[in-house]
Design a protein around this nucleic acid. Structure first.
Lengths: 248, 248
DNA sequence: GCTCGGCGTTCCGATGAACGGAATCCACAA
DNA sequence: TTGTGGATTCCGTTCATCGGAACGCCGAGC
């Protein structure tokens, strides 16, 4: 996990990295073990982190990520910064459709969900704000991959492509064709490639320089869906957000 | 700012702390200056943080908070954790009223906004997700203060109470009376105490143990508002969220 | 009641990561 | 051309950091 945590900074970061969605709170021993550092060291560093507010300590003595860290992290331009300008448009999308709305950016060879509005009656989706996912399956992923630098595309296609359902595309050539189509059409459709009952339609969001910096999508029930009718509304939202990002 | 940054950890945290909403990107020199550390040191630490993803470096060489940090910070139980369970209820509130919806928690003697839904046509409010505010002025603040430990209340009342408008309560005795009323009524009203044209109605959210862990509010135009009619819907949302937090 | 094992905390002396000053390099402006 | 501010690298010193060990605490098992 923590690779070799030589420098102090690396140790501290390894400690933060130890927290996962599956275990958002950790005892000191768990923390030390996962970060790959000795217990006294973990104790010292954790104490400092708690004093500052990067970690918090519950009544039971377990550690968790602190609100203070969340505060400074909220300054990430690609995190809340993006979210803030996008939110009104996502709201509109949700209000019109009452389906799941998702906003994601690419981080390396995966995507990270920056925002998600889950309708109470919409299809359940297994994504989480702050969570990661592969690029080749979801609608947002296909958009982000289609507009990524060629080097990134090659790397992503070279890696093993996990099949989430029988419909997940894992043949490289077919994927290449789909990506070309995504670039041509200006939107992507993922039909049952993550879960069989869900279909998503995604469109690219462009930054000031015209590069694709994020993607929005609507996720609906696969059987009731008509992708063609959803594409325009998703694209409109994406264009609206792009306009806010490119002043003038 | 960085007090005395003796330990490496303190330095790293001081560097993160250097970023503010007003300046979300910094040059290396600015970063070093704000963190109160030497330039070579800042350079070394920044390089490590960039390598891990806690910071990112733009094409212009300026540093910004990285998406990776945002990811782990999203695991903060009082940040996104709370937000996730609250979101559907906030959505409902927004859809019914189309006014500003806010969700906040107390952090020390201030409050931190965890979520905010800003209607495009609602009163402009000067708050920001991840931003801080004083406890004694806003609706959410009054709720959080009213249910805070006595020691915290005393500390908060002992500090100078800033007046944001002519209507801001700054007399301690009157504030005490208001807090008692908030506890009795189960909701708080802040009428023109932050900006003269805004009025907010807030209600407490309780955790598994029954303690107040957060507060929701609706912020509406002061002149068109009827607090009494808003209280029930806000309270209902707060109860709904509380129920999700206290399983069983 | 006693013991054992896991966990958290504190203390110690040895060690090496981190430090700041100085030198270098670069881009831009005068 | 020179000058200025920022970024980067180098080097020898030093002090913060390190892990082992010892200790206190609690709950489970005998």
């Amino acid at each position: 996990m923590g690779a070799d945590a030589r420098s102090v900074t690396a140790k501290v970061l390894a400690m933060l990295e130890a927290f996962t969605p599956a275990s958002p709170t950790l005892s000191l021993s768990e923390l030390a073990r996962r970060a790959g550092i000795s217990l006294p060291t973990a104790h010292r560093r954790a104490a400092e982190l708690v004093a500052w507010g990067a970690l918090e300590r519950g009544a039971d003595g377990r550690y968790r990520i602190g609100l203070r860290l969340w505060e400074v992290a909220s300054l990430a331009p690609r995190g809340l910064g993006l979210r803030d300008v996008a939110m009104p448009f996502l709201e509109d999308l949700y209000e019109v459709t009452h389906e799941n709305v998702q906003l994601a950016v690419r981080e390396g060879l995966e995507l990270v969900f920056v925002e998600r509005i889950a309708g109470r009656h919409a299809v359940p989706v297994l994504t989480r704000v702050g969570g990661r996912f592969a690029l080749h399956a979801t609608g947002v992923g296909l958009v982000l991959l289609a507009h990524a630098p060629v080097a990134v595309q090659e790397q992503a296609l070279a890696a093993p492509l996990q099949a989430y359902t029988a419909k997940t595309m894992t043949e490289r050539d077919r994927l290449r064709a789909v990506l070309a189509a995504v670039r041509k059409n200006g939107y992507a459709v993922s039909d049952g490639q993550v879960t069989l009952d869900a279909l998503s339609v995604a469109a690219p969001i462009r930054g000031a320089g015209g590069e694709v910096v994020a993607a929005v999508s609507l996720v609906v029930r696969a059987d009731t869906a008509e992708p063609i009718t959803l594409a325009p509304v998703v694209q409109a939202a994406a264009r609206g957000i792009s306009r806010m990002l490119a002043p003038g």
